[in-house]
Nucleic acid binder design. Sequence first.
DNA 1: GCCGTTTTCGGCCCGACTGTTTTCAGTCG
Length: 572
Amino acid sequence: MTVHNSEIADAFDKLADLLEIEGANPFRVRAYRNAALTVRGHPHSMAELVAQGADLTELPGIGEELAEKIRTLVNTGELPALKKAEARIPGALSLMLKIPGLGPKRVKALHEQLKVRSLQDLARAARRGLIRTLPGFGTRTEARILEQIERQAQVERRSKRIVAEEIARPLVDYLQAIKGVKQVTVAGSYRRRKETVGDLDILVTAGRGTPVMARFIDYDEVVEVVSQGETRATVRLHSGMQVDLRLVPQVSYGAALHYFTGAKAHNIAVRRIAVAQGLKLNEYGLFEDGKRIAGRSEHEIYRRLGMAYIEPELRENHGEIEAAQHNRLPQLVEVKDIRGDLHSHTKASDGHDELRTMAHAAIAHGYDYLAISDHSRHVTVAHGLDAERLAQQIDAIDRLNDELGRPLLLKACEVDILEDGSLDLPDDILARLDLRVCAVHYQFNLSRRKQTERILRAMDNPHFNILAHPTGRLINQRAPYEVDLERLMRAAVANGCFMEVNANPDRLDLTDDACRMAKELGMKVAISTDAHSTAGLDYLRFGVDQARRGWLEANDVLNTRSRSRLLRLLRR
DNA sequence: GCCGTTTTCGGCCCGACTGTTTTCAGTCG
C-alpha cells in the first residue's frame, strides 16, 4: 500500500489545524503547513524518495523531525503525533476551521465552553442560541455559522477556467466602462492559468473619487456582498463565483498585481527574500526604510530583489524562485510557436465539420499541418472508422492535399487501445498513415498495474506514435484512470513515442505536473486540440497554458516543428 | 519546527475587513 504525497500533506495539515486550535506556537504550526505545501507540490512521491534513501531534509521546510515523520508515514501509514493530538481534542474540530468566520481561537472557545465536538454539535448549539452567549461572539456570528453549516452540503467546487472566463469577461468590461477606471486585471489563479479557478481576484486602478466599489457591488450578477471596504470588497455572483476586488493606486499596481496573483506560497517565499535583504514587500510596493523603491511594475520588483521576471504560470514556489535567481528560467512555449495541430475529427466519425472545412480552418490559423484523426471502429458511439472507411479517408485527404497544392492535412487516426493492449486496426492500414494517435476509451476501471501494462503493450506496436489524453480524466467530472504515468513516459522515451497535452478545456490531460515530469524525463509532448469542429481548433491556447505551467519550452513540444522535422521525429 | 551574506538563538509575510467592542482580536486572503 503506497502512501501518496497528498495523504502525507493532509496529515500535516490536520495536525497543524489541531495544534493551532490548542494554541500551540504559531510558527510550529506554520512549519507543518509549509511541509504540507512542499510535500503536496513535489513532483516525486515521498514513498519513492524514502525507498531510495534520499535525504528529505534537502526539501524546503523539511528538517530532521519532519523528515522522520515523513518516513514514519510512508512506512506505517500513520502519524503518531496526529494520533496523540486527536486523543487530546476531537479530530473533527479541524472541519470547523473550514467554516468561514471560524478560526482556531473561536473553535477552541466553542470546544472548551460549549463542549462542541462535531459539526452536528455546532449546529445544535447555534440553533439553541448558545453561541451568542460566548464572549467575542454575537448574534450575527451565530446566524452566519448556522447558515454556513447548512450550505456545506453543496461542495465547494473550482470552476473550469473556460467557465471562469465566461464569468470574468463581462465583469471586466463592466468595470472598465466606469468613468475614471484605468486598469482592470484579473489576477489570482486565473492569471496563473490554472486549469480551474476557485474565485476571481480583480485588481483595479482608478482616478481619485471614482465610485468603483459602489458600482462593483451594484453589478447585475451580484447576489451577496460578503464584505466591503474602501479598497477591498468581496461579493458572490449569481453563478456562485466569489469575486474579490482590490482598488490600488497606480504607483502600487505592480506590487498589487504580484501580491494578488500569488500563489500564496510564491508570495511568502518572495517576501522572505525581501526581508533577508532588509526590505519589506507588501501589496503597495517594495520598501527600504519606509521608502518605496519599487512597485509600479512586477518586473521592477523582481529586478530589485535580484532575480529574473517570473511568468505568472510558474509562480507556485516549485523551484521558480531559485531558477530566477540563477537566470535559469525556461523560455516558455507560446501559441505562436505552434505550427500545426495533431488531433482533430471530421464528420467521418464524431466531428461536426467536413474535411474541407477543417482544412480551410487550419489555413486560417496559419498552420503548416493539421492531422485528421477520426476514431477507429471500436468507438461505435462515435461511428469509428474500420479499415475500409479509413482507406477511403486516406484517399480523400490525398486528393484534397493535391487540390490545395501542399500536404496540409496529415493522414492520421485516433486508434483505440483495446483491453489486451492491441490496436484497433490492422497493421497494414495503420502503416499507410502519417501518424497514429492512440487512446483508451473503454475499461477505465482496470487496476493500476493492468492499465499500465495495457498501454505499455500498445507502445510495443511500432505504429504507436502519440498517447492521446493519457489519463482519461474529465475535469470535475471523471477521475483519471489509475496508471503509472512515470513508467509510461520512460517507455515512451525508450520507444520513440510521445504523449499528448489534450487542450480541450474539459480535459487538459496531461496535467501541469505531468508536463513537468515529461520534461524531466526527456519526453516531448504534442499540444493538440482534439477538435470536433473548426471552433475546437481555438482551444489550443488552453493546452499551451497547461504546458507553460509545466515549464515546457518550444523545444519540448512536437508540433512546434516544421512538417518535415515532425515526420522525422515520429519515425520510430 | 525550520533556518542562517544579520543569526546555531531568535527570528519566522503582511495588511484589510468584520463584529463586537469601546480600542481591538480574530479571520481572511
